[in-house]
Design a protein around this nucleic acid. Structure first.
Length: 217
DNA sequence: ACCCAGGTGGCCC
DNA sequence: GGGCCACATGGG
């Protein structure tokens, strides 16, 4: 069976560095992580643009902004009523826990911070780990739908459990921030291009490694 | 007219 | 712990 290093090498050789996360500041990364839930990144770009336009893309202004105002600017990302609440919940968390000072947040122990993030309504495993990895520089592997689908088709997992798949990556790879960042980004690129619900296996860089072309889900 | 997108919380068992 | 459902806009 294929191993993760082999898959990483094949993806990196084919796609090259992905320069993730696509955000200018850690705060933008964190808000983007919430807004991109079950949503194409293109829509998130519009919402981020709206937030910048409205000078809302920072802790203080978002803390003062009403839910209604936030709903208006994040509408293009879909689920906008839920997401505006999630953003508010997250900002309230930052204020209460760190007085809005992100440096205090970054200074916290990773495991402890993860528990706290997961207690915020609207932040689940993937969003928490995206924030931890790409904004806080804490080594947690991000698992998403593309990751699960790819590993399923590679026959490297049986489970669908987020935590089991995350620990599978973390136990199999060197604990390296840049590796985690790049690998997750490459898996998303794989998912977008080839490992789709309706797969496009012919030109997939994992062709020859992945048994899926000969099989079905 | 479908199907899909870098999920999550509530409810139920 | 897992299965099912609502949540919503925008693009192929």
């Amino acid at each position: 069976m294929a191993d993760l290093q082999e898959i990483y090498s094949a993806l990196f050789q084919s796609f090259g560095p992905q320069h993730w996360w696509p955000g200018e500041t850690p705060f933008e990364v964190m808000i983007g992580a919430i807004l991109t839930q079950q949503t194409a990144w293109k829509n998130v770009e519009i919402a981020i643009g709206n937030l910048k336009e409205a000078n809302l893309l920072d802790v203080e202004p978002l803390h003062k902004a009403s839910i209604k105002r936030i709903e208006e600017v994040v509408r293009p990302t879909g689920f906008y009523r839920q997401k505006s609440k999630s953003v508010k919940n997250f900002i309230n968390f930052l204020m209460e826990e760190y007085q809005g000072d992100l440096e205090k947040m970054f200074g916290e122990d990773g495991q402890e911070l993860r528990k706290k993030l997961l207690s915020v309504k609207g932040i689940g495993y993937e969003t928490a780990d995206s924030i931890l990895l790409y904004a806080c520089e804490k080594p947690f592997f991000v698992v998403d739908a593309y990751t699960k689908r790819a590993l399923r088709r590679l026959e490297m997992i049986e489970t669908d459990s987020y935590e089991q798949i995350r620990t599978f990556f973390e136990d199999s790879l060197p604990r390296n921030l840049d590796l985690y960042k790049e690998f997750h980004a490459l898996l998303v690129e794989l998912g977008k291009r080839y490992c789709r619900p309706k797969p496009i296996c012919e030109e997939c860089p994992l062709n020859g490694i992945c048994p899926y072309p000969r099989k079905t889900d």
